[in-house]
């Protein structure tokens, strides 16, 4: 039995295979409409989410399976003080696979230690979000036709942005990748990513504070939201929340084939005028997220391909 807790739980070859399957699902969704018939997905969301939970549920429904679960800690036994370990032991009896989102970092790993069914990390605090990464990788591959030899700019909250940590970790395995990390000093990438991933693998990166200075170099610009829920101190949030806003004015200096990604939801970090630019790929990501989660659940459930 396999889980997906960390982006590195899948090898580069497995990711390629999974993205190939996701591409095929995108091209022939009807062929996959019953591949998970009789299977149940449990969505254990201890933290609010619109996109990720609905994306998982939509993915399972698209394959003929069914879904059950909860969408906030208040509506689960966590409100009564139940541990993650106990909850997952119970859920293992009700479902065939589960997706867990939790505000505490490492909760999905904890769940996987006690689970009898595959566990998918659907986001743990400011730590990792590997299915968003698969979505990002699929979108980058569709837009650029490769995952290697790219200059990727990541902009905004790089400290608490779990999608950023997962994406850097996953892309670090591809040749010729270079990162430009654009953030205020207080929201820089945590040292465990710098030390364990970038420096450990000798991957070129630079940390800058000004998007205008670097936007012309980028093949991919990955924007993120400054997340209010990750701050213990409201004052810090208010001071930093408008640090970076992408406008058409700034986009003028970008490459004509640069792709702008964002894990969504956005607040104001991408001006609405950018939505109509052909380089805006963030709504493509949402659709790709469903296909890639279908491919992932098929893989972890070891169901036969159509």
């Amino acid at each position: 039995m396999r889980h997906l807790i960390d982006p590195l739980d899948l090898s580069v070859q497995e990711i390629d295979k999974l993205l190939d399957l996701a591409d095929d699902i995108a091209g022939n969704p009807k062929r996959y409409s019953q591949v998970c018939s009789g299977k149940k997905l449990a969505t254990l969301f201890y933290e609010p989410s619109t996109r990720t939970r609905l994306s998982f549920e939509s993915a399972m429904l698209n394959m003929g399976g069914s879904v059950l679960g909860f969408s906030s800690a208040n509506s689960s036994s966590a409100a009564k003080g139940e541990s993650v370990a106990d909850t997952i032991r119970a859920v293992s009896c009700y479902a065939d696979i589960c997706a867990i989102r939790h505000p505490k970092e490492g909760a999905p790993l904890r769940a996987s230690q006690y689970s009898k069914i595959p566990v998918i990390n659907a986001g743990d605090g400011g730590h990792q979000h590997p299915t968003q990464t698969l979505t990002d990788l699929m979108t980058i591959r569709v837009k650029k036709h490769r995952l290697d030899h790219l200059t990727i700019g990541l902009c905004g909250d790089l400290k608490f942005g779990r999608t950023v940590h997962s994406l850097i970790t996953a892309l670090s395995r591809y040749e010729g990748v270079r990162f430009v990390l654009i953030s205020p000093e207080e929201l820089r990438v945590p040292d465990y990513i710098i030390d364990n991933v970038l420096k450990a693998k000798n991957i070129p990166f630079e940390e800058v504070e000004n998007i205008e200075d670097v936007i012309s170099q980028l093949d991919i610009l990955y924007m993120t939201r400054v997340q209010k829920e990750r701050f213990f101190n409201e004052e810090d949030y208010i001071r930093l929340k408008d640090s970076y806003i992408l406008t058409m004015d700034k986009m003028q200096n970008a490459k004509p084939d640069m792709a702008v990604l964002h894990p969504l939801p956005r607040v104001n970090e991408i001006a609405l005028e950018v939505d109509d630019d052909p380089r805006a790929a963030y709504f493509d990501q949402v659709q790709n997220g469903v296909y890639v989660r279908m491919a992932l659940m098929m893989t972890l459930l070891e169901v036969e391909h159509a």
């Binding site: 993650v84 505490k104 904890r110 030390d195 364990n196 450990a200």
Partner: peptide, 30 residues
């Protein structure tokens, strides 16, 4: 922010980093 801060009966497990710097990271939150 680590799950070890709230989960009962959880082992606190740290792993030696592989970069030779003799540092330990929590296996849950890193």
């Amino acid at each position: 922010r680590c799950i070890t801060s709230i989960e009962e009966e959880i082992n606190h497990v740290f792993r030696l980093t592989e970069d030779g710097t003799q540092r330990y990271r929590c296996i849950y939150c890193e």
